[in-house]
Every structure is written in structure tokens, then in C-alpha cells.
Design a protein around this nucleic acid. Structure first.
Lengths: 339, 339
DNA sequence: CAAGGGAATGACAACGTCGACAATTTTCAT
DNA sequence: ATGAAAATTGTCGACGTTGTCATTCCCTTG
């Protein structure tokens, strides 16, 4: 492999001078700079990060730990956000996946340490509470889409499920809906309670009674193998004597079944029943016809801002453990009718 | 940071001996081995990959280049497959995303080289034909879910779209369907032609005439911003006088709209119309009711086998450029009725 | 008990890079 | 022209690891 030494030889200068050129340091004549750059181009020299890292004990690499990359295609945008930040700031990304196994997680932390990672982004694919198996390890870490169990040990950045659900509920209420159905997310997910709570409170603020709300559980059980009641729950809600004029779905995916239930009963969307989702999982929200009005989870921003924050934590050295929240933007499409 | 030297000092041996213990080399007394291992544990020593790499010029790291991690949540399982293989074989994964920009791709290849990556997995999120911007670079590479434009320059591993579509078509034919609709994928995708071709041929083999097939284009245009005709196309097919008894969808996502079109017309699934998808994109295929019969893209295996193959290529040094194909398994659920 | 052989251990250099410092050349005011 | 400051370039060592080769020690065999 071509190293700084071969370049130096080719350019007829010392290797230190080559180093200076590479790192854009001052005190190099324009003439020598050009000669060195030519040699670099001719030889196809590319700096060796490993060697740099040994010298500087900085790897310029971030690690990403995810729980399940698979099973859930939702939050890939988090990773994209991280990558975009990393790319524009000359950082590399080392990536690993626990598959939900704690022993694997421990291995991954070791692997990260052996690469002398500068920092870790701990990403979960569902908004939830977790405890990184970091334990003894003290690498700067930012949690994305989740927050630590044990108090505020680590900085975390999360979507504002409450605000998103509040905005959606208001959106329905402002359009005159006064009887509203709600299909709940799997209670395991942190978003489940936040969204339901926002729905309930906002409805109450607008003067609706609990009896105006038809709330049903849509799913429960371990993630990836949950019991699914959505279709039955939606059918049930829609066959009530005083049928709601709108249904709010715990997320977009469940909205598929609500659509099917409504159509099966001969109801038209949105003429007979309005529906809103949550997440803006576009594979679904755009495939549904009419297209689904929903609140977009800010996954990309979570990733991008998370990476930026981690970078700050690394350079500042002071781990200001705190919690940030990114808002969910309401995406208006055509699944809701104004009464 | 604690290094091999500190361990040696703590254990009262030379650093070479520590190295021997770490790498499981022979010629170490059980006694000293234990002493060294104790020191390692006490000090929390973790080998420095960068230093190893400098000595050995092997990084034990694979790079993954993807085009769009985002926009398409489909093929994340490829990444999971790769990670699982890597994890069980002590390799690390450096990951980057081109976002479809050639200039970014060039940067990424440089970044990979600067980390002295052992090999690259070039992954596309859609099954398609591409040309890696590797150009001058000569890192061992395996292409996953795509194949090279210019002849057989690189090894590639792809799903067998043809076989999957053939099996699905047979499945319908064997259940007595003789008039079948087909909604075509975006022609940009490699799978589009393969699947349609398999459908046509298999139908012909079973004696169906071209007039028994209602083939419509479902989508076209650039990926991520395509025109979507699926709902209209499905409605059209379903309103023909001699309505097909089954519709085959280019993929699962488009099947959502076919369901909605059918239900909107008051047709029951599968009693009045049978539907099959393709991909087994479970967020959709399991959310649809009745659940969707489909052919599963072998994404996980593509990733796992691709990583394994790359490892072979790296150690053998001979780049046997060839093309491998992994079959798509038919997943029978309840969206098809036997006539 | 001497000689030979193998096992256990260590000393040292080198991988590629860059910081500290030294040496050399250029520039500029006097 | 002269000395001093500034700019340019170079030398050397260290980062953590392991391959090569040398050294020490113990055991076997005649």
C-alpha cells in the first residue's frame, strides 16, 4: 500500500512536509504543495485512518447500536439522518445490531471500544425506555428514539408523541368531529400512552365527554409477535349505534385495517368516516386511498440532530445529560372530512 | 488508554507474551496465561484494532454501500443478514449511503479505502442494474440485490424474481383461476420485467390466451417520486364485464390499493376476487385482512450469503465474477380462494 | 553427568502518521 | 550590506501491535 513515505520520496520532500500538505497546515510553498499534490494523485495515495488514530487516539468514527434494524422498517430514516450528518462532517459510521439480545449488546460495546469509537448513538426502532448494557463503559453516548430507564444518565432525543397526537386531535375537533374513535397502539411502546393521553386531554379541553370517545386496544404482546385486534376493534367501533364520525389510529400501519373494516361495512372514506394515522410511514400513508392525514415522526431529524449532539458531547467532554424532544409535523392529506 | 504494555507490566511478563495469550498462540504456560488473563480483566484491556491493522494490513472490517437506506424500508433485512454474518465471524461493518449521488459514492469509496476495508458489499434497495463508481478501485466487492451494467465484472447475488412470480402464477392456476389481472411494477425496477415475464409465460404454459390476462401499469417514473396508477388500474380491471377471478400485484404495497379498490366496489376478498402480492413486506402483507398470499423476497439470505461470499472472495484472492440467485419462497395466507 | 532438543519467554523492529523541535532558507528593516 | 525575525523544511520518536529471531530454562537420552 502506498504510504506517506512513498509520496515523500516521489515528491522529493520529507514525509512531514507531505503530512503538512495533507492536513492543510500552513508553512508550505505553493510550489512544493503542488508537487506533493501531484505525487499524491499519481500514486493514488489515501491516508491511513488506523495510523492516524494510533497517533491521535481519535478515530473520527461513531458507532450506531440498534435493537432491531429488521422487523421494523419504520425508523430507517434515523440512520439516514445520522449518515448524512456524518458524511458532511467527515465521520465514519460503524454499525451493529443487537437483535434484542443483551449478550450481543455487550459484545458490541467491546467491539466499539476495540475500534476506539469516539461516541455511540444508541438507537431503538420503537420509541421506548431502555437501559443500555454499557455498564462500566464510558464512551460518550446519545440515545435516539428512546430514553434511559434509570433517571437521566444519558442525553436522549425523542419524538414529541404528545404534541403530535394533540395536533391531530385538534385537527379533527376543529373540523367539527364530536364523536371520535381511537385504536390504541401496543402498550409496550412509549408512544402508546403519550398519544392516548394527548388524545384524551385534548378532547376533554374541547368539552367532549369520555362517552364521546370509543377507545379500543389495537395490539398487544411482544414486539414482532403481537396479537392483532385492529380489524375487530375498528369493525366494532363502526357498528355502534352512534357511530363516531372519525377514527384516530395509533399508527399508519393499523390504519390499513381500519380502512378495510370501514370499506367492508360499505362506508366511504372520508364521506362517512374520517381517519387519521400517526407516523407518516409513507409506504402506507401514500398507498392508502384517499391518502392518509397523519403526524410525521421526525426520524430523519432525530438522527441528524442526535449525531450533531453527540459530536458536541464528545468535544465538550461534559456529558450534559438531558432530554430533547422533536416535534411531529401534521401532514394534511385527504382522509378527513370537515363536518 | 490501557494497552498491551500496561497489561504486560501488571502481569510481570513481556508484551509479546501478552500478545500470545490474546491471540491464543501456543507456548505459554497455563500459569502465565492465567496471570495475564487476570491482568487483562483487572485493567479492562481491549485490543486496539487500529494498531493491529497497521501491523497486519487487514482491518477485519467490511463496508456496506447502499443507495437509499431511506425512502424504501423494504430491504433493511439485507443489512440485518450482513450484520448477523459479520457478528458471528468477528467482522465489523462500516456503513455509508450514497443517496443516489455519484459524487458522494466516490467519496465513500475513498473513505472505505482510508479505513483499509477488507471488502465492500454494494447493496441496492431495489433489484436493479447499476455500475459502481468504483472505477479505479480494486477492493473485493460483492453486489447484493443488483448486478453490474458492464458485463460480469463483479460477483452479484440477487433474488429470483422469475421463479417467485412463476410459483405465484402456478399457485393461482392450480386453484382454477383462468382470468387473471396483473398490475405491473415500475418498469425501472429489474423485478418488473422478470415478474411480468414469468406471469405471462406460466399462464401461456397452462393454456391461457393473452386475452385472459388483464395487464396494467401500476407505477412509473423516478423512484421515490413515481406516478401512481394502481387504484385506477385495479378499479378498471375489476369493472370489466368478464372480471378476472384473481389479481396479481407487482408487489405488496400496491396490493393495498387493489384491496381498497375491490372493497370500494363492494367485492369481497377472497370470495369475489383473489389477490396475491410479491415481496412479503410484512408491515403490509400481515396488516391486510385477509392476510396476503405472497412470494417472500429472500432479503436476509441475500445479505447473509453475500457477506459469506465476500469473505471467500477476500481470502481466495481470485475474483470469480459470477451471478448467484436466491429463490423466493411462496407464503400462503388467506387472500386466495380455490375455485 | 554431558549433550541435545524442545518449550517458554523476551528484545527489537516495523507498520503509517504526526507532534515537538531543530535546521535551513528567505525576507526585511536598518 | 547585515543581522534578526519569519517562513520553510527536515529529523526523530512515539502511538499499540505482532513477526522474527534470540535467549533462557527444563527435560530426556545415552
Amino acid at each position: 500500500m502506498v504510504s506517506i513515505v512513498s509520496v515523500a520520496k516521489a515528491a522529493g520532500v520529507s514525509n512531514k512536509t507531505v503530512s503538512r500538505v495533507i492536513n492543510g497546515e500552513p508553512h508550505v510553498t505553493e510550489d512544493t504543495r503542488e508537487r506533493v499534490e501531484k505525487a499524491i494523485r499519481d500514486l493514488g495515495y489515501i491516508p491511513n485512518m488506523a495510523a492516524r488514530q494510533i497517533r491521535s487516539s481519535r478515530s473520527n468514527t461513531f458507532g450506531i447500536i440498534t435493537d432491531y434494524v429488521s422487523t421494523t422498517p419504520y425508523s430507517v430514516d434515523i440512520v439516514r439522518g445520522i449518515q448524512d450528518w456524518a458524511n458532511t462532517h467527515g465521520k465514519s459510521i460503524l454499525m451493529a445490531n443487537t437483535g434484542g439480545l443483551p449478550e450481543r449488546e455487550a459484545e458490541i460495546w467491546k467491539m466499539f471500544q476495540s475500534h476506539r469509537i469516539d461516541g455511540v448513538l444508541y438507537v431503538t426502532m420503537y420509541h421506548r425506555v431502555v437501559d443500555p448494557e454499557a455498564g462500566d463503559v464510558s464512551i460518550p453516548t446519545v440515545m435516539i428514539n428512546c430514553r434511559p430507564q434509570t433517571s437521566e444518565l444519558l442525553p436522549s432525543i425523542e419524538p414529541d408523541d404528545f404534541q403530535g397526537a394533540r395536533d391531530l386531535t385538534r385537527y379533527l375537533l376543529e373540523r367539527g368531529h364530536r364523536r371520535i374513535g381511537y385504536i390504541r397502539l401496543n402498550p409496550i411502546l412509549l408512544g402508546a400512552e403519550l398519544r392516548l393521553d394527548a388524545f384524551r386531554r385534548t378532547a376533554k379541553e374541547f368539552g367532549l365527554a369520555e362517552s364521546d370517545l370509543s377507545i379500543r386496544l389495537g395490539m398487544e404482546g411482544p414486539v414482532g409477535a403481537e396479537e392483532n385486534y385492529v380489524f375487530a376493534a375498528a369493525s366494532d367501533i363502526l357498528q355502534q349505534k352512534d357511530r363516531p364520525t372519525a377514527i384516530m389510529s395509533g399508527n399508519d400501519e393499523m390504519a390499513i385495517q381500519i380502512y378495510i373494516a370501514a370499506l367492508t361495512l360499505g362506508l366511504r372514506i372520508p364521506q362517512d368516516i374520517s381517519i387519521v394515522g400517526f407516523d407518516d410511514f409513507r409506504t402506507v400513508s401514500l398507498a392508502l386511498k384517499p391518502e392518509l392525514t397523519t403526524a410525521a415522526l421526525p426520524y430523519y431529524d432525530l438522527g441528524f440532530q442526535g449525531a450533531e449532539w453527540l459530536n458536541g458531547v464528545i468535544s465538550e467532554e461534559k456529558v450534559r445529560a438531558s432530554r430533547r424532544v422533536v416535534s411531529c409535523k401534521l401532514v394534511e392529506r385527504t382522509s378527513v372530512r370537515a363536518l
